[in-house]
Design a protein around this nucleic acid. Structure first.
Lengths: 196, 196
DNA sequence: CATATCTACTGGTCTGACCACTCTAGAAAC
DNA sequence: GTTTCTAGAGTGGTCAGACCAGTAGATATG
């Protein structure tokens, strides 16, 4: 299902581009940051027009897999950027019913993460937060504060899901998070009084 | 940050296409199955070339949001198909570290869903499962069995996340789910003996 | 050695063309 | 009047070729 390098006639040409590039990455053992062939080279190699190649590339780019820089070339992406995730979230979770569930779901996912944080690194989180104090973290904002928990749970996937949801949450309206920095501090029993 | 309809000069043109289409869908209240403007119309309306429009469309198409049919037009997709989700999951969660976390994360998300199912519709689930009996549901498979829980929790978002994860889980290798139908039955105290 | 300039190459965008396909209004046949 | 057939308009799929705007490296210049 995955590494079929033969061109499929029935599907659209740009989909073959996706497969080819996927193979290309695997075969050449390309790593993040590496440069792909130029669009003109790919076009010649795959016997397709440059515009068709570009349609495929745009799709992959939106997924955050590659990055294009004018004058330089096309590169494999180091990692999924926050911005891309945000856009993705907006599209994936478009419909009305889904939007109604964001609040609930975000809270639930955060519950899971917080629980994980408690078992895997309660001490670290407490010292990190109490080090700078409540006032500091409140100023840095909810996202930065929560990321401290994310940093210790060592689960990239759960992390990505949170980012996806959080980005989506913010994109709906410019509302504040249901939870506050104060809530976070309290769930880890860290002092929330501001020392002068 | 979200619904700015004004064209951003710094970003690439096809990204503006994405925004425009997103707005377009919202403003015109388009529903799944509805037809979008033709590529040529969009091009004229947005003052862009058709190729640029197409680059944007291809990206959205890969996300499974739209569907193009030659000779007919471009349509909003009815639902996010399972297949598309699988492809998406593969791209979004590409890297090695992320893959290592799938097992854990899937279990955790399922815990959340199961807990929700217990509080919101334990009776329904129990009667549904015990109605056909364990043998029936075991034959129908884990996915179908789990979907019973999903059907009562009334949270589309959590549902989508599960589908995304589950698809991704299966795509990594053709392995069986960590949990079994039996486990599900037991967490709801439904009999797992097969009557003859 | 440092600097400025030139040049080849890259992605970004546009134009205009042709194909294959679908749908439909109107002509033709009944 | 009803059915069937057909031509044409419209749609997405693909292509070739062009120009612009950046980048990087070679080359020439001080």
């Amino acid at each position: 299902m995955s590494i079929l390098t033969k061109t499929n006639v029935n599907t659209k040409a740009y989909q073959n581009v996706l497969e080819k590039i996927k193979d290309y990455i695997q075969i050449d053992q390309l790593k993040p940051g590496d440069k792909l062939s130029s669009e003109r080279e790919m076009a010649e190699e795959l016997n397709l027009s440059r515009s068709t190649i570009r349609e495929g590339l745009r799709a992959i780019e939106l997924l955050g897999l590659i990055e294009t820089r004018r004058g330089e070339g096309t590169f494999l992406r180091p990692y999924q950027s926050y911005q891309t995730l945000s856009l993705l979230a907006g599209f994936i979770f478009q419909d009305r019913e889904t939007k109604d569930n964001v609040d609930d779901t975000l809270v639930m996912i955060e519950d899971v993460i917080i629980e994980l944080g408690r078992t895997r690194g309660e001490d670290y989180i407490q010292s990190k937060w109490s080090g700078h104090g409540y006032g500091y973290w409140k100023k840095r904002g909810y996202k930065a504060t929560f990321e401290v928990i994310l940093s210790v749970i060592d689960n990239q996937l759960l992390e990505k899901i949170w980012y996806l949801l959080y980005a989506f949450y913010l994109s709906i309206e410019d509302k504040q998070h249901i939870r506050t920095v104060k809530d976070l501090f309290q769930s880890f029993h860290v002092q929330t009084t501001i020392e002068t």
